[in-house]
Design a protein around this nucleic acid. Structure first.
Lengths: 247, 247
DNA sequence: CGTTTCGTTGAAGAGTGTCAAGGCCAGTGG
DNA sequence: CCACTGGCCTTGACACTCTTCAACGAAACG
């Protein structure tokens, strides 16, 4: 743990000129309100690849805004089975699970070196109560998480392996695009096993389906590097349609 | 639609002497704060079996506290597949999905005649901002929903049919008990197909597993009526343990 | 450069889905 | 009161998807 102070200093927060602001905070927020937020957001925290941001059972104190890097969150059943519940990219808020019981109920791990803004929750609640636009935003973020999970339930409950993978890749693609990266070419930060866990499949199945997609000309796959060749083809897979042209 | 006025009058809300208060509102709430809540909670609304409380796409205006009855919520994919995302019992809050986008993203349907308290969301936000204990409660309810869905993802992503059904029945049992009903004997308000949709199984599989449980002496099943004979046996099924005693 | 982790692929098997037939039950109308 | 109807549930046989087990290859790491 060398030079934590340096690291902390380096990560001084400045929402006002953070390029993730529009992902993380409501648009059109008054400068004066922005300052209130900056005032409570502690310095950032670095999480190295493989390290935990927090664990299930940890006391809940902060929300975290992901500034840089890539995270996964997982839940573990009493008998030890692990389920990936989500992957997180820059601009997303993690830790909402902790609000319900003052303790976290899932683990969050960095899949690549990450930096987060630490947001003490009690103080966020205070500010949010006083700043309607922030309060609304916070509620929307939580609600959006609920809706997202509905989508995952649909995926897990009623789709075949190919549809799941296809929906997953399209979702990643869209999120990369929203962050200014290529929507057709990106690197999968997670392993096949982690994808499989998230999608309710075994890693071998994930691998096989990716190979099949590549063979069908939908993707180019090179280990973790993926290029989407035929996005419409992928969308057809999700819709349960055959890859062949409509009759 | 006979006598809507009568119906509305009959359903006048009175949180202060509602026996669901401890499920629905924070404990130890000051009487003065309770009055603020009562002031915004509109008269109740009845939803007959089979009718919608709201539909995906409906403008989001209210949250609903379920006073009486049994609801299901479902999401539908673009190609028409329907997934049950939850079943709701008295004291639970529904409609949180709508906050994210000012429109609902799921359908909620009554599985038996129901009554809900209608809570205009904008006014709830105002009151919640002013009443910390209510604000905290609202946030906890949303967070709890997120955590609940994590559990469903675990179920859908990593459990076998028998484990899913077993976990589902135990969950229902617990919720009935929390409401003062028998934890061992209850009526399933949903069809086999609806259970299957929620659990990511086909109705035939649900039926078969229930029969198997009955044959193994874990349950007595009579159509929609279920009696849990061996709760520990059911718990062992969820843990992935065999039904036989531990070695 | 060995070691480890991760990924790919094949063959065989288990668990669910699909299809089909029939039973049970509540509601309806004769 | 009874037959009829339609929705729901159960059960069997079979097909299919996905998992399991296993071997090997490729990349990452110290």
């Amino acid at each position: 743990m060398n030079a934590p102070n340096f690291s902390a200093a380096h990560l001084k927060v400045a929402c006002s000129n953070c390029n993730l602001r529009e992902l993380c905070l409501p648009v059109g927020m008054a400068l004066s309100d922005l300052e209130k937020v900056e005032a409570i957001v502690a310095n950032g925290r670095r999480v190295k690849r493989g390290e935990h941001l927090f664990r299930a059972g940890d006391r809940f104190e902060n929300l975290y805004a992901l500034r840089l890097g890539f995270l996964k969150s997982t839940v573990t059943s009493s008998d030890g089975r692990e389920q990936v519940t989500g992957f997180h990219m820059a601009g997303e808020l993690v830790g909402l699970d902790g609000i319900s019981s003052d303790a976290h109920s899932c683990d969050v791990v960095a899949l690549e070196d990450a930096e987060v803004c630490v947001i003490p929750y009690p103080r966020l609640e205070e500010v949010a109560s006083a700043v309607p636009v922030l309060r609304n935003h916070l509620h929307k973020v939580m609600s959006r998480e609920i809706v997202r999970e509905h989508g995952v339930m649909l995926l897990l409950g009623s789709m075949m392996a190919e549809e799941r993978l296809s929906a997953f890749l399209l979702n990643l693609s869209q999120r990369f695009e929203a962050r200014g990266y290529s929507r057709s070419e990106f690197v999968l930060r997670m392993t096949r096993a982690e994808m499989g866990s998230f999608l309710g499949l075994k890693l071998e199945t994930v691998s096989r389906v990716l190979s099949r997609f590549a063979q069908d000309g939908l993707l180019e796959v090179n280990q973790k590097h993926v290029r989407i060749v035929d996005p419409d083809g992928l969308r057809n897979v999700v819709s349960g349609q055959a890859t062949c042209p409509p009759n």
